[in-house]
Write a protein that binds this DNA or RNA. Structure first.
Lengths: 145, 145
DNA sequence: TCTTGACCTGAAGTCAGGTTTAGGTATTAG
DNA sequence: CTAATACCTAAACCTGACTTCAGGTCAAGA
């Protein structure tokens, strides 16, 4: 059994955030002891892990709450739960692709300002396609088309 | 030369957002014609592209504004600009890594609810390590340790 | 001429996702 | 006994990034 302070340390989440999740109904199975203190068993800790996973994948607090409600409702909601994770799977895959494009542009910008520092000016812009190494040229053209 | 409506369509950004960026100083070079209408030349369009890139990489509006100010200040700020892009490069790389972990957990959850639907219950949880295909088991153990 | 559509401004409003505050309880160390 | 520590609640507050609103200009077409 963990206290809120321990859970806070495990997940590097502020205590206030965990209480907020509880208030929003994200931890329906959470128990309190006789002096009104939250007690986290393995299941409750797992719930936090799922919350973090869904959060990172872009699910809203309301969406996570819905999921937790489905979990309470038993086997009849397996379909909905699967659907949610499949939606989030696609969303994360798309997000990774987008970040990879962003990363290419940023790498180009790093190269660009590196050159600018070397030359003291940006006049080399005119010759970029020539100057650019092969493996970077392609993403440059993609980023600027 | 593009109107704000055209730029809005090109980048799929609401007109109000572009005006907001202008108000916040993200488009210092933007000109207006004699009837006070914004006119976007290629440079201003490039600026929007950079704004989107920095935004996707997690830079705040204030951070982007600082960058635009440095661009106005000339060659003396190449160092700062490079530093910014290097910071964002690291940030995006870390974000991609985190999303890849998230994706693994989500894939596991998809597999899990797929099984749950197949069996009509979650009793197979006991045997997960046995049931799990080799390539998934490792991330399962990672995700649950 | 009038009205439709695209543009403008400043100010106020919105929303998610927390965080902070104020005031209180319970347990433990000195 | 008391003081520090860890916990509690309800409610107010905050922040970033927009969005909406109210009211106005301007050019073109019927």
């Amino acid at each position: 059994m963990y206290s809120i302070g321990q859970v806070s340390k495990i997940f590097q989440l502020p205590i206030s955030t965990i209480r907020y999740y509880d208030k929003e109904g994200l931890l329906p199975n959470l128990r309190k002891d006789n002096s009104n203190t939250r007690k986290f068993d393995e299941e409750a800790v797992e719930a936090i892990r799922v919350i973090e996973c869904l959060k990172k994948s872009g699910t809203s607090i309301k969406g996570i709450k819905d999921f937790m409600t489905w979990c309470e409702e038993g086997p009849s909601t397996y379909g909905k739960r699967l659907e949610l994770f499949e939606k989030q799977k696609k969303q994360v895959e798309d997000e990774i692709k987008e970040l990879e494009n962003t990363l290419n542009m940023i790498k180009f910008k790093c190269w660009y300002y590196d050159k600018a520092m070397e030359y003291g000016n940006e006049d080399f812009v005119e010759e970029i396609p020539e100057i650019l190494p092969n493996e970077v040229r392609e993403s440059y053209i993609k980023a600027h088309s």
